[in-house]
Every structure is written in structure tokens, then in C-alpha cells.
Design a protein around this nucleic acid. Structure first.
Lengths: 204, 204
DNA sequence: TCTAGTCGAGACGCAACCGTTCCGTCTCGT
DNA sequence: ACGAGACGGAACGGTTGCGTCTCGACTAGA
């Protein structure tokens, strides 16, 4: 049972890299944690180094979370729920483009593009981490994207028997592949071209 | 400069998990290496454990590769070049389905589906590993897939101004996303349905 | 038969990190 | 003014892995 004292207190304040946290020490620890996580990866991440980078003692960390795993789950969940707003532009094309833009913005963050694949790889062999990531991130995003497609069906932009499962893979896969796996750049109009292709695919 | 004595000697012999290697000791080490890599990940991988699992001494490993990184690069390259044959079924639809089938078969291997995301995440912070993986795996596959699309253009199945770059992301992304990231199952006709969507997208 | 090389096994020194515990200090609320 | 508690910092014993090295056994070719 992970103790997670890292809860929001002042919802309208959102310090840049770090999530919404209680106090300055917790924020410094969280920021150092994510920097270390991006630089070294989960497996190599040392709480000693995190403490040092945060200008804190190890005790300050262990006073907040019982272990590295609990800390990771709590912090990752905290940033994940700090999610982007749903699009709802009125048209499927607008929604898809907004969705892709949100994903691209997130993955273009140098820290995120290293942390996310690392945590996903780690979660393949860590059930607790996997479950936390899946329920906090995947399910949230997935339900929002599903809602986006269902609205398109209601508007008559998509047939009622649209393959939602497949459409979700098409929405997320190519951009993740390019930005998080290949670390390849995207041309300025890449998202627009991708949107065109995806609309054709989903409607097919 | 990685020493890579792990070269093919008898090309027609391909022991299951392990690549084409020189002798039984090297094969045992390689097999143990991949099992450990899948189980623990690159960062946590211990050469002591690999040696123990292979029933070998540590010296047997250090006699072959100078370091963990060189070992990983050499072995990963060895299995990667042991690539599947190109499709060339005569139609774009057949080629795409064959391509996706090949990718799916590879990613459905429990070891591969853990090793590949792990090495890709690791390569984000290890330039030498990244370069080795990219030249040995990505470029090889990418050129084959490009050739597949160019043939379709020559046959008149695709317009001459087809966006190859985008098409490659569409081919690889969704399946990788589903199998390697989400670890979600695929329905029996998933690849066929995906092929239909992708053909519509690429031709759009 | 002798010799050179590899084999499995494991000890070695060294370094890093874990999780805990203790300092002495500083900042609160009362 | 006082005590409770969190703070940074440093040390602790224990574990793990690295890369080197040595050992006796086994196997090859000369």
C-alpha cells in the first residue's frame, strides 16, 4: 500500500516540470527525481543522487515514500492526472489534430521522451508499476479518445460500426513511434499530414 | 571499437533463441544473456548472473567481449541481421500484410517484446547502443519497407508523390504500440483489419 | 607425450547503493 | 520561551556487481 502524501493543495499552481505538490522540499525532490529518471533510467536511478540533486537528505525522501517503487508510482501518477484538457473542437478533424498536438507536445519534452519509454519498458517486468501507469495514464487517455470518436459517430462523421479499438492504436501508434522510439523530428506540417491519413484510415 | 567474434560460421543452422554463433559455450552465453536481458533489463543485467545461468565462468565472457555494452551491441546486431525475408507478394496489400505479420511474429515473442522496448529506452541515453541499433535494425527494416512501397508505386498501386516517411510511421507505429507498449492481445483478424486501414491511409 | 589454450569456478579489491540511524540546526505553533 | 518535528548531512552494515586474477581439469594438436 503506497503512502502518497504528494497530493494537490493549490490546484491552480502548476510549477513547470514538477507536479502539484505540497511544499518546496517535496517539489525539489520531485524535480530532481524526474531529472534523474530521465538521465539514468528507473533501474539505475539512485535515491542518494536524487537527494543530493535536490539538496536534501535521504531521510527527507524516506519520510515521504517507503520505497523507490512507491515514489515512482506516486509521482508518475501525480503528473499523469495533471492531464491536458480534452479537445472537442466540433469536428473530428479538429479533435484528432488537437489530440495529436497534445501528444506531440508532451513527447517533445526531452525529459518525457526519455522517461515514458523507460517506465513502459520497466513496467513490463513490474506489475505494480504497470498497473499504476495503466490505470492512471492509459485508461484516462483511452477513455478520452474513445469519447472523441463516439462524438464523431453521433455527429455522423463516422459510421456506427467504427472499429474503435483499432482507431485508438492508429491514433497513438505512429506519433509515439516517431517521437518516442525513433526520436525523429517532425516537419512543421507533419501533424496535419498525419491527421489526413488517420481520418482516411479510421473512416475506411 | 567493439570486438565481435560472434560471427556466423554455418549459416543454415539457426538455434531457436540464440543467434548463429561459433560454439556451444558462446551459444549458451548468448542464450543466457537474452534471457537475463528480458528478465532484468539492460541496466540491471548482471554478467555474473549471465555466466551462472550459462553454466560458464565470467572469464569466458570477458574473453569474448570487453564490456557489457560491447557484448550487447554485438549480440543484438547478430540477431537483428538474422532478419526475416522480404515479402514481395506482388501486391501492396499482400506485402503490407506480410510485413505486419513479420513484425507481429517478432513482437509476440515474449523475450523480444521485453528486450526491444528496453534496449530502445536504454539507447536514448547511450549513443553507442543507439547507433548500433539504428544502423543494424532500423535502417535495414526501413530500407526494406521503403522498397516495398516503391514497388507499389512502380506497379501503379500508389501515386508517385506518396509520402513514404509518413507511410513508414503508419506501418510500424500501431502494431508496435499495441504489442510492445500496451502488451495488448490481437484478435485473429487484427492484422487484416489493420492492413485495410493502412492501405486507405497510405493511399489518401 | 608434451604443451598451449580454453574451460568452470570463484576469490579478490573496489565501488556504488540501499535503508537506517544518528547528529546538530532551524522553523514552526503554542 | 518552549518543545515537537522536519531539515541537511554523514555515517553505518550489508549487498551487489564490476573487471581482474588464479586455480586445477580437460582437450587439442604437434
Amino acid at each position: 500500500m503506497p503512502s502518497s502524501p504528494a497530493q494537490a493543495r493549490d490546484p491552480q499552481r502548476r510549477p513547470l516540470g514538477g507536479p502539484v505538490l505540497q511544499d518546496s522540499v517535496t517539489e525539489a525532490i520531485a524535480a530532481a527525481f524526474f531529472e534523474e529518471l530521465a538521465g539514468a533510467g528507473y533501474a539505475r536511478l539512485s535515491l542518494e543522487t536524487v537527494a543530493k540533486r535536490a539538496g536534501a537528505g535521504k531521510a527527507a525522501i524516506y519520510r515521504r515514500w517507503p520505497s523507490k517503487l512507491d515514489m515512482t508510482v506516486a509521482l508518475a501518477t501525480a503528473v499523469a492526472v495533471d492531464a491536458p484538457v480534452p479537445p472537442d473542437t466540433g469536428t473530428l478533424r479538429g479533435d484528432v489534430l488537437a489530440f495529436l498536438t497534445g501528444v506531440a507536445d508532451a513527447l517533445r519534452n526531452p525529459l518525457a521522451s526519455k522517461i515514458i519509454p523507460d517506465l513502459l519498458a520497466e513496467s513490463a517486468r513490474n506489475p505494480e508499476l504497470q498497473q499504476a501507469l495503466f490505470t492512471a495514464v492509459r485508461d484516462t487517455r483511452r477513455s478520452k479518445a474513445t469519447r472523441m470518436l463516439e462524438q464523431a459517430v453521433e455527429r455522423g462523421e463516422l459510421p456506427a460500426d467504427t472499429d474503435l479499438e483499432l482507431a485508438l492504436d492508429l491514433l497513438a501508434g505512429p506519433l509515439y513511434w516517431r517521437l518516442a522510439v525513433l526520436h525523429a523530428p517532425t516537419a512543421p506540417d507533419y501533424l496535419h499530414r498525419l491527421t489526413d491519413k488517420l481520418l482516411a484510415a479510421i473512416a475506411a
